[in-house]
Design a protein around this nucleic acid. Structure first.
Lengths: 394, 394
DNA sequence: GGTGATTCTTTTCCGTCGTCAATGAAAGAA
DNA sequence: TTCTTTCATTGACGACGGAAAAGAATCACC
């Protein structure tokens, strides 16, 4: 039997140190004067912040011999030692659990997933605990301690309290998930909404690095949106934000489960597309993969459905851009498998609906690996571990 | 001839002092321990921050003899001395200029407005300069120095640079308005977008006090929206945000000047309403006042137009609520004169379209006096004068 | 009218953090 | 070798805010 995992504290005792560290984490190897510039600190402050982090092994000096400016003392780059700590990210969906072991740089070391039968908290918790134990065993193999667990769940999640307030997919309500997982694992647990977790991953390790205002739009079983404004992920006063799926695109459109007609989700989410393709073609299309295939083979009905979906997504994104003026929108999600089928419509609809300079916003697609959601969860765990102030603009 | 105005620096040398001051400014008279609690500082820090502000006359001790808890040393309340400094707020619209003299608490002392003939920068600047001179003369009468001028303009404004990048109403482009007004007045000038200015006024002096996430929606000649997220007004990466007017409500609706169909502005802004009422009734309705009157007298066509407008506004607000989860939405603007005609539809449409806990968001109407826009401009001037970090959550 | 209890406020001391300016270090250039 | 350039470190310093203790103002009680 394994002894209870021990976690250690991250040695960033000052806000500046945490800021320096996240800067290096996001922007790869940096020289000390680079850090000073990006973080808006003096060189002296950087030296003082970096030393304990190097001593603790979280940062390492790098023999940065690339493209020196040939004059003056060469700069010493510093980078994060990803192998210094491990984290576990868990994504719980309605029918499976995905769990990852990642390093401090959020690089995936091991991935596991198990199908899920029941949705009661009890069996789900047991399955999560089992997966976590497996990954902890793997971590032992690396000889590195796991410092935290992130759990991502769709729905209304209170990260600070570690509680799932309402998850329609899982039919959970007011579940102190963080506490429960903490009890079975003995590790610090961060619970967050899945889209927000993905947004954190993009902000720290992805296409949102260095941006203070951007959005992540996910297309798949549902349509979601994570927002970063003023350098921080938006949670909303009541814990819910980014509900782009229920932006009404066409008041005469199909009925949505929320009760309205023509929500983006009722037009462009996978179930809606499958249903619409079935309607249009009369064929017994069972899932999104079949719908995509049909469209790729040129079925006009199916193609039309995808065109409409792309239009809806583009207009939903334009709505976000008009309201918040992000610098970039990152489009992601399982639904991107069909991107070739609606890319044009998304861009056209966005261009037509974005108003004024909002149209300057940069649209970026990012194919979503199946384990990306769990990676988001790991990112929240890393965030909690490092603590300190939220990611700045640098 | 008056001597060149001299402005003084605000004596809040530490961020904590500025925070304390804005807390008192927004939350009225406060005892020192109240401030400490709200600002998250120690009592000692409050004492140290308050003293220089009292010495400089910006704060004054108040004989707060109301409802003492009967035990212990009575608390001394402190409040802002509004009369300590004056500010000028100017709102430039397509056909008139409104200028206000306000005190430090943004209370209006004197209001002036003049019609505007040309829209060229030159005559507008002259008119602004004349109005400002008049108000400076009034300020002399109070024996108090004017410490800054705020100018609010619709369109794309870069506050930091003091430039109007694009104002469709005024047909201005890349105009260094701040610099120009500063030259003619010798006072520090803050230039900002009109809706954002109004939002600042609500955040510091209105219904947004103490909220870290809220929205201001204005209904009138256009439909606008100011957003506060994480305690700061959202400006967007490209200077534009809150373009709620071009959220598409009904893709089959009337053509909007932006080129799309069924934008909120194309349904619910004054010109759209007037046009629709004309269409519906066949009467030569000239302006919003006549349309309102017609509807109030029970004309079914006009009533229907207002009902549709209310529905559009409610859905636009729900879109904002779904995306950013504000704690409150403040509805304002000249269009509120017709509030009785569409209040019900706004609330119904909002309730129907707001998803999940976003519906908990609190809808508040705030009748807009004609000079409220200029007051927003004054608020931005006050904000610039005080400097320091943006308004916190407290 | 003391004396004590209670609460608000101020004072004093102290630790922390980050900047400034000077110094040291590592290269290439002259 | 010596100078120049750039990066990095050091130590002195000052600003800021917190902890704790003292002071102040009131009421309750004897």
């Amino acid at each position: 039997m394994r002894s209870t995992p021990r976690t250690e504290a991250f040695p960033a005792h000052t806000p500046a140190a945490a800021q320096i560290f996240t800067t290096v984490l996001s922007h790869g190897p940096l020289t000390r004067s680079d850090m000073a510039g990006r973080a808006g600190l003096s060189a002296a402050a950087v030296t003082k912040a970096v030393r304990p982090l190097i001593e603790a092994g979280y940062l390492v000096e790098e023999a940065g011999d690339e493209a020196r400016p040939a004059l003056g003392r060469p700069a010493n780059s510093v980078r994060v030692d990803g192998g210094r700590a491990l984290f576990i990210g868990v994504k719980v969906t309605g029918d499976e659990i995905i769990a990852l072991l990642t390093d401090l740089c959020c690089r995936i070391r091991v991935a596991r997933h198990v199908p899920l039968r029941g949705r009661e908290p009890q069996p789900v918790l047991t399955a999560v605990a089992d997966l976590v134990q497996e990954l902890l065993a793997e971590a032992d193999g690396f000889g590195v301690q796991v410092q935290g667990i992130g759990v991502a769940v769709s729905g209304d999640v209170d990260r600070a309290a570690g509680e799932v307030r309402l998850s329609p997919f899982l039919e959970w309500r007011d579940l102190p998930l963080g506490e429960l997982v903490e009890m079975t694992t003995g590790l610090p647990v961060t619970v967050d909404n899945d889209v927000r977790a993905l947004t954190v991953a993009e902000q720290w390790f992805g296409a949102g690095v260095g941006l203070s205002d951007f959005a992540v739009v996910t297309v798949g079983a549902g349509i979601g949106c994570g927002l970063v404004v003023h350098g921080k992920v938006v949670s909303g006063a009541h814990g819910v934000a980014g509900e782009i799926g229920h932006v009404v695109i066409d008041p005469t459109g199909p009925l949505c489960h929320c009760g309205n007609r023509g929500c983006a989700e009722a037009i462009a989410a996978d179930p809606a597309i499958v249903a619409a393709v079935r309607d249009a073609t009369g064929l017994p299309v069972a899932d999104a993969a079949q719908a995509v295939e049909l469209a790729r083979r040129g079925d006009p009905g199916a193609r039309e459905v995808y065109a409409r979906a792309g239009d809806a997504i583009g207009r939903a994104i334009a709505t976000v851009a008009n309201l918040m003026g992000p610098e970039r929108v990152i489009i992601s999600g399982e639904g991107l498998a069909a991107y070739d089928l609606f890319a044009e419509q998304i861009r056209d609809a966005f261009a037509a609906s974005a108003f004024g300079t909002a149209a300057r916003c940069d649209l970026l697609t990012r194919p979503l690996a199946f384990d990306e959601w769990a990676r988001g969860a790991a990112a929240t765990a890393i965030q909690s571990f490092i603590g300190g102030p939220p990611h700045g603009t640098g």
